[in-house]
Amino acid sequence: MAIVERLIDLILWPPLFYYIIFPGLIFVMIFEMFLIWSERKIAGRVQMRYGPLEIAPRLAGAPQLMADLIRYALQEVIIPRTVDKLPFVIAPIAAFVIALMPLLVTPFSPTFLPVTTEGSILIAAALTTIPPLLLILAGWASNNKFSLVGSARESFLIATYEIIILLVIASMSFLYGTLDFLKAVEAQQALLWGIILNPIAAITYFVAVMMGTSRFPFEIAEAESEIVMGAFTEYSGIMFGLAMGISYARMFVYNIIFVLLFLGGWSPLGGIVTGNYILDSIILPGASVAIKAVIISLLMVFTRAVYGRYRIDHALKGGWGFWFIMALVSIGLSAAVVYLMEVF
């Protein structure tokens, strides 16, 4: 019995639970499969067709993604002779692992969290900037012209969207007067959701995340008709599947930050008290955060059905010429809100 209890304790040990089970690896895998499936379904509905359907039509083709995953897992991983092997192999794996790391500091409930730190917003924002560097590395190591072009495009984009995202996050922490997600959520519960307090910041963040996770119309670094698959042209098998998953994992992480900063974190479900520790501190608040994040992610994948892709200079022009200014405006707006709160 003691072993079982120790096991349960181990599983519920917040760092492990957060990174491996929820909202970490296992949940992200499920989330990714759901999201890719719904992306294809959404696109299919808009595009006069069904989307995945052949595998289990009654489940609307949902097992299709399982099948894809199995196919990727069993396919031979081809490592071309001309690539730089070590970075080539490490880059997507490390990118995926690091992409999930911000989850360690993003709380899903007010009481059950792995790391309590004053600077959790700062740490999360810092960690989200690392995976794109590894994507550049992957393209560089691939020794392929298209990969190089993809990497170059990615590096141009990073400079744009990372600054916008960081500025917006700064404006929100300015608004809440804290660098801690917990306090930010508390502030929202006390006052109003961030999206109402500072809508400009919310929209800017949303667009910058679309840019950062190569959603349409910013799917520039992997533009198929131009540079085949961008930095991942040379990848195959499970490595390719992993590489494909990175942008979705990053989108999930970004959207959790979005939920915590703008959508009131775990309110409304987090406030319910049933007496059961697991239900109260993990499932209910966790579910409300996750559901909100999924809805935001669905909005992001929906744009695939409406837009083509921008050219890199248009995206940069839009990023620096419009959204960067909007990010600065959002800081101003935060200042105004803080001032107003002081006055009244």
């Binding site: 959404i42 509905r45 808009v46 006069m48 067709r49 069904y50 359907l53 929906f302 744009t303 059905a305 409406v306 837009y307």
Partner: peptide, 18 residues
């Protein structure tokens, strides 16, 4: 454009022949 997309999402008009 977004609202047209939403409209088609809500009321799909499919011509797929299975």
């Amino acid at each position: 454009a977004l609202s047209l997309g939403m409209l088609r999402l809500a009321r799909p008009q499919r011509i797929t022949l299975r």
